[in-house]
């Protein structure tokens, strides 16, 4: 935590937070709605960033875990009237558990093999939802009538309210994940991303940490799914496809691996097509070109993580750690 680094960062964060807080006042209802979906995209992008951006695990099926969270919320809320916000941790846990179970036998696979298996998982989940497994998912029509969330007696219903809920969640996520990045766990993931054989060889339990990253990312995606279900009140398999996973994958890669990058990536991937609306039917064409161009121009992503800095002046601190280990 060198002070210069922090000093530059804190005002920027305050400015961004202030901007986010007043932004809806300047937006028309259409753009407020767009910003809510970008916020949900940012939550998902942050959650995938743990897996793909930080640990380097090629997961192109992240929508599967999003789906589990959304459906768990929808089923429990519509059948048992459990409030949506109480279901956030339940949805997260269900997703995380599914991810751990699914990833356990495949976590040792090499990059591209893992990628296609995760694609398989998201397709299997989608088909399972369409086929109304266990009579719970409502088939191709999905589930409707999911309740709106309620905080301190205020029912969150309007887009502007969701804006603050979702972007508040984004802020909290960035804070928690940034801490994680700077910890033993975050470093272990960086090492695994660079060279998992070397990581294992210097004492890092590679398989366990890969699973941890997978589980955490899926947990967060599950919670985002719960918010999504509450926002839409109707969910169907069409929202959780391979295509959605691809967009998230692109968002994280465009971002470059940092928390800020993941949020920026969500803006580009979920916001750009809205800005390109003027191109009408050619907007996805332009989007495809933009995706290629951005990677060619900046292959490392737009905001790769800044190197971690540590306080190494321990002699000045009176050698208080002298007893450690050695």
């Amino acid at each position: 935590m060198t002070s210069t680094f922090r000093r530059a960062k804190i005002p920027a964060l305050i400015a961004l937070t202030a901007l986010a807080a007043v932004l809806p006042l300047a937006l028309n209802p259409y753009w407020t709605a767009v910003f809510v979906s970008i916020g949900l995209g940012a939550l998902l992008s942050l959650s995938l960033n743990v897996i793909l951006g930080r640990a380097g695990i090629f997961n192109m099926g992240h929508a599967a875990f999003y789906a589990v969270g959304a459906y768990v919320t929808a089923v429990l809320n519509t059948r048992y009237q459990i409030p949506v916000l109480w279901l956030l941790p339940v949805a997260g846990a269900a997703s995380g558990l599914c991810a751990l179970l699914a990833a356990r036998p495949i976590i040792h696979l090499r990059g591209d093999y893992l990628l296609i298996v995760t694609v398989g998982i998201v397709e299997i989940v989608r088909i399972a939802l369409v086929n109304d497994v266990g009579g719970l998912t409502g088939g191709a029509n999905g589930i409707f009538g999911i309740a709106r969330p309620e905080i301190f007696g205020i029912r969150i219903r309007r887009d502007i309210q969701f804006y603050y809920l979702v972007w508040g969640a984004v802020g909290l996520t960035v804070a928690l994940f940034s801490r994680l990045d700077r910890s033993r766990v975050g470093r272990a993931l960086s090492c695994i991303k660079e060279d998992d054989t070397a990581a294992e060889g210097c004492g890092i339990a590679v398989a366990r940490y890969k699973l941890l990253a997978f589980g955490l990312g899926a947990f967060w995606a599950g919670m985002a799914g719960a918010l999504f279900a509450a926002k839409m009140t109707i969910i169907s398999p069409g929202s959780f496809t391979f295509w959605d996973s691809v967009l998230l994958f692109a968002a994280v890669t465009l971002g470059g691996g940092s928390q800020a990058g993941a949020v920026l990536g969500a803006f580009l991937v979920f916001g750009l097509p809205e800005i390109f609306r003027d191109f009408a039917s050619a907007r996805m064409l332009v989007f495809g070109l933009a995706l290629m161009a951005m990677m060619v121009v900046r292959p490392q992503g737009l905001l790769p993580p800044a190197p971690r800095r540590y306080d190494t002046r321990f002699r000045a601190r009176g050698e208080r750690a002298a007893g450690d280990g050695a």
Binding site: F249, A250, T253, M284, L285, G288, M292, A293, M295, V296
Partner: peptide, 10 residues
């Protein structure tokens, strides 16, 4: 990979 996805969308 992402460039390839962009090309596919295009």
């Amino acid at each position: 990979v992402v460039s390839a996805l962009g090309a596919s969308i295009f």
